[in-house]
Every structure is written in C-alpha cells, then in structure tokens.
C-alpha cells in the first residue's frame, strides 16, 4: 500500500543526497558555462540582441538541454539503485516498515526534485541574465524550456532507475546508460527520419507517430517547436518529424508524462528478489 508518509520521508532524504551529488553540481556548472557561451557567441556574431539573435539563442539552448539533460538524468538514475544495493542499504531497508515501491517512488521523486532544482538554477540563471541584457526575451520561453526540460529529466531519470535496478554492477549500469543516451539523442531520430524517407506512403502515419512517442527526446523536441514556434531551425529531422507525424500538443504532453510513469511501474522494485544479487 502506498503510504504517503514513507514516500515523503524518502523524497526528503533522496533530495538532499542528490543535491549534494557532485555530478549534478558539475552538470549545473557546465550547463551555465555552455548556455552563457552560446549567448555570448550569438551576441558576438551580430553585436546585438535582436530578434534573430534571441531566436538563435533559444534554439541553441533547446539543443543544449536535449543533449545534456538526458545524459545527466540517465547517469544519476543509473547509479541510484545499484550503488545502494552494493553497499547493503536495500538489505537494511528490507527490515524497515517501508515497501520496495514506496522506497523506489520516493527515491525517484526526490532525485527528480533535485534535478529540477538544478535545471531551475541552470536555465533560470541563464534566462534572468539574458533578460537583464535584452528586452526581447520573454519569460514564457524560459518557463516552457524549464517545464519541458524537467519533464525530459523525469523521463530519463525513470529509465535510468530501471537500468539501475536491473544492473548487477555500477559499471554495467553506467555503460548501459551511456548506450541508451547515445541511441536516444543521436541515433534514434536519424533512423526514424531515414525510415520516413524510405517508407512514407507505404506505412500508416500512426506508426511514425508511435515511433516519435517512443523517444522522449523527440517528444520534447517536437513539443517545444510547437510551443515556441521554433520550426525547422531546431533541425531538419525535427521539422520532418513534425510535418509527417503531426502530433497534437496534448498527446505530446501525455507521452512525456507516461515516459516518467511507465518506467516506474516497470521498476516496481522487489527488494527481496534483488537482495540476492
């Protein structure tokens, strides 16, 4: 039974632990450096913060988010369970009045909240700084970026935790997480676009839409192009995906939420069976 109290206790503990995680702190720092670099380069090339420059900054920040956030979430998630299993913490928890699902759900929410805080710092500071220099940066853009980035982080954190709960060592969890990241960020949409080029007209468009939903990176990419009107600037692949699959914004949001929920259901962690490993 889901006891909210046990979940909240675990959320608090996991939040504190993840916020102190050096990977997360390093990620926020790298994100800040890269986002400021992007803004500085855009400004340096045009010597102004006109509409085109700001638009270019939006696109660059979006691509930065799509690249870094899955990586960070997967890394954090993939080490989350396997590390505590290695040091006997899960065994200890088996003797506590807390169920495996309460523990996993609390850990997920706590780590997600910490990641969200990191994103709030990373994206928020960048947005605030740019707002100070320009008058044309809307708060809505950064809010949309923050919300979708947090959703993306949740999806990949959940996937990372599934990897972690199924891995026998930290090393194998790390390698699996990196492979998943590479597939999701770099390989998947290339393959999908090639498939569209090859089979469009022969395959029902719903199949392509389903394929789009199968990768949260593409879901967020298309969702943000909808919301922010970034269009083809985000990338030719994204433009093609959007045109061919024509998903509604609501379906994209639902897909993103499902990506956070479904892995956690798969992950319904059985402490008893895992203690043996």
């Amino acid at each position: 039974m889901l006891s909210a109290r046990n979940v909240l206790i675990t959320v608090e503990k996991e939040f504190l632990e993840t916020v102190r995680n050096r990977w997360l702190q390093g990620f926020v720092l790298v994100f800040l450096i890269l986002s400021f670099t992007v803004a500085a380069i855009a400004h340096w090339r045009t010597d102004s913060f006109d509409f085109d420059t700001v638009h270019r900054i939006h696109v660059s920040l979006l691509n930065l988010c799509l690249l870094l956030i899955p990586l960070m979430a997967l890394l954090l998630g993939s080490q989350n369970v396997v590390a505590e299993r290695a040091d006997g913490f899960f065994e200890l928890m088996c003797t506590y009045p807390v169920s495996g699902f309460q523990l996993m759900f609390g850990k997920f929410l706590g780590a997600w909240a910490a990641l969200g805080t990191g994103l709030l710092v990373g994206v928020g500071v960048t947005g605030l700084s740019l707002a100070l220099f320009t008058q044309s940066i809307g708060a809505g853009v950064f809010l949309a970026l923050l919300v979708t980035s947090t959703g993306l982080a949740g999806a990949f954190l959940a996937v990372g935790m599934v990897i972690s709960s199924r891995s026998r060592s930290r090393g194998s969890a790390l390698v699996t997480a990196l492979v998943v990241w590479l597939l999701a960020v770099a390989v998947y949409d290339m393959v999908l676009v090639q498939a569209i080029v090859a089979w469009q007209g022969h395959v029902h468009p719903l199949a392509f839409r389903a394929a789009l939903f199968a990768n949260p990176v593409d879901v967020v990419r298309v969702l943000l192009t909808h919301w922010l009107g970034l269009g083809i600037d985000v990338g030719t692949n994204t433009g093609m995906l959007e045109v061919v699959t024509t998903p509604s914004t609501a379906s994209l949001v639902v897909a993103l939420v499902l990506w956070s929920v479904l892995p956690m259901l798969v992950c319904r962690y059985k402490l008893h069976s895992s203690a043996r490993g």
Binding site: K13, L16, E17, R20, N21, E84, D87, G88, F89
Partner: peptide, 9 residues
C-alpha cells in the same frame, strides 16, 4: 556487513 558506505548525508 557494509552498510551506508557511500551516503553524503
């Protein structure tokens, strides 16, 4: 036997 080794709390 070897609990709590890696916790930053």
């Amino acid at each position: 036997q070897k609990a709590l080794a890696g916790h930053p709390l």
